[in-house]
């Protein structure tokens, strides 16, 4: 009987399970082979990631994308979401049944409502120091004065120590110098309609504006598959024309938008 190398077999199986992009250590798979590969094996776990909205009207997509990354990173562990009150007033309050429909069970979520940006940062840092958490989302509004390089370094440091990923949704904000490991810009993208021209699954135009260790300036159009908790690459679906939303191009990277809407 030939000797079976169990370890090698296990590695092989896990490779198959994870698809063609093995996830590097200290990272988690964002759930899309293309993006994982571009990131060099998934997204850094103990780090700060900034997520911008293409325009202020796309804030729900940016926040949802952050939720999806949190779902990927957290598994079954609890998630803390710190949100400045103004975001809720402007873009609507978090709706738990809607989160459940994205795949984040609301009973795993602790929501902190903060009056101002300093409170958001303070609560976010406190939460990011708690290792049992799966992920922390923080959502200050605009470009608060307190969110400088020092503040973002503190957040990144807290995330690094606890190995809890920290996603900062920058609704209505522009790119400032920060210690974020990656920076994304998310916009809603036309979905693949279902039967009877019904709106389909959430689709986003994802731009990787910055990656501290890898290449940046890439963009994808993806669709969130709630049932499998992963992203589907929309451009690879044969026979589908996906219109690129106007007003956005990779050239506009790092520029950031302001929108009066």
């Amino acid at each position: 009987m030939p000797q079976v190398d169990l370890e090698a077999l296990r590695r092989q199986v896990s490779q198959l399970e994870r698809g063609s992009s093995p996830v590097a250590s200290g990272r988690f798979s964002v759930g899309s082979t293309a993006i994982d590969t571009a990131l060099g094996g998934g997204l850094m776990r103990g780090a700060l990631h900034e997520i911008f909205a293409g325009q202020i009207m796309h804030e729900p997509s940016a926040a949802s994308f952050a939720v999806m990354l949190a779902i990927r990173a957290a598994g079954e562990r609890p998630v803390v979401w710190v949100r400045q009150d103004f975001v809720g007033l402007e873009m609507g309050e978090i709706y738990a049944p809607g989160l459940a429909e994205l795949g984040l069970s609301p009973d795993r979520l602790i929501l902190v409502r903060a009056r101002d940006a300093p409170s958001v940062l303070r609560a976010g840092e406190e939460a990011a120091r708690c290792p049992p958490l799966g992920a922390v989302l923080i959502e200050p509004w605009g470009n608060p004065k307190t969110l400088d390089l020092v503040a973002s370094r503190r957040l990144a440091l807290a995330a690094g120590r606890s190995n809890v990923p920290l996603f900062m949704v920058r609704a209505g904000g522009t790119a400032l110098p920060s210690a974020a490991a990656t920076r994304w810009r998310i916009s809603a993208s036309p979905s693949v309609p279902l039967e009877g021209e019904a709106p389909g699954h959430p689709a986003f135009a994802v731009e990787l504006l910055r990656d501290r260790v890898g290449s940046a300036g890439r963009n994808w159009i993806v669709e969130w598959d709630r049932d499998r908790r992963e992203f589907k690459d929309l451009e690879t679906i044969p026979g589908r024309m996906v219109p690129v939303p106007p007003g956005r191009s990779p050239d506009a990277a790092e520029a950031g938008y302001r929108d009066a809407g």
Binding site: P60, A63, S64, V67, G88, M91, G92, E93, I94, Y95, A96, P97, G98, L99, A100, E101, L102, S105, P106, D107, S191, L194, A198, P199, G200, H201, P202, R226, D227
Partner: peptide, 22 residues
């Protein structure tokens, strides 16, 4: 009792929004 959230139906897109105005 521990809360029980309804499980979304497979293959259905989200039928409820993530953010709501009140």
């Amino acid at each position: 009792t521990s809360p029980v959230w309804p499980t979304p139906e497979e293959e259905e897109p989200p039928l409820r929004p993530v953010q709501i105005f009140d």
